[in-house]
Design a protein around this nucleic acid. Structure first.
Lengths: 114, 114
DNA sequence: TTATTATATAATGATTTGCTTATATATACA
DNA sequence: TGTATATATAAGCAAATCATTATATAATAA
């Protein structure tokens, strides 16, 4: 077994985490753009606590990190996380989600503070 | 968006399917060796219906196929399935599980009919 | 200071999941 | 043919999941 291979139980845990359409799309978006909670609320049309809970799960395994900027808390992918190489390979096979952020731009609800 | 990219909801569905340690290990094993139900029962130490139910889920999305050989039903990965390229890339990042089958050989519980 | 905005957490409930045991079906063997 | 073996399906149950509403906390604006 390669030293670099992810363990099966860790891999299953990560796949289960990504096996939710909302979280998977979040991570795909965050892989190329920082976003704050309210942007995700707008994109996914679910309640703010629901978004916060998804982000919490991603943060709990260290896959995303948060950073306060004024009134907002921005999330980004933690590319130095041990699971990132595994996740990154998966994300690379997914269609880019730029249309979601472009939609926010058009609506004027994209947050571009700081 | 690339024509070849898997849709987000399909991707999430596949990841959720693989996001179970038993199923993930099954698919990893099946990717290189056909196996029958009773071998998985031996490997995973869970009930036979539990194994059958996992295989059913994998079969329902077309990721594995079955073939009767005498008294046994052998399962294998359906490499022509539309999701196989996506899955294959994930499997390639996992440690090989040959030790599981080697263990069966040692115990003499490997099925090598037909 | 008070009101507003952004976010997190707690509590709750419906649905899904993954196991179990019991049972049905199909093949193989004596 | 009758019995054993391999597998599938059904039913039941505990735990996990994902949403919601209510509430708490922190920063900003008036």
């Amino acid at each position: 077994m390669l030293k670099t291979a992810i363990e099966m139980d860790r891999a299953a845990m990560i796949l289960r985490l990504l096996g939710d359409k909302t979280r998977l799309t979040m991570v795909k978006i965050l892989d190329s753009h920082d976003c704050c909670v309210c942007e995700f609320v707008e994109i996914f049309k679910v309640s703010q606590p629901s978004i916060s809970q998804h982000l919490r799960k991603l943060k709990d395994v260290g896959l995303v990190k948060e950073e306060r900027r004024g009134q907002w808390i921005f999330y980004s992918v933690n590319k130095s996380n041990e699971y990132y190489p595994f996740v990154s390979q998966i994300l690379s096979q997914l269609p880019d989600q730029d249309d979601k952020l472009n939609e926010l731009e058009k609506q004027g609800t994209r947050i571009t503070c700081c």
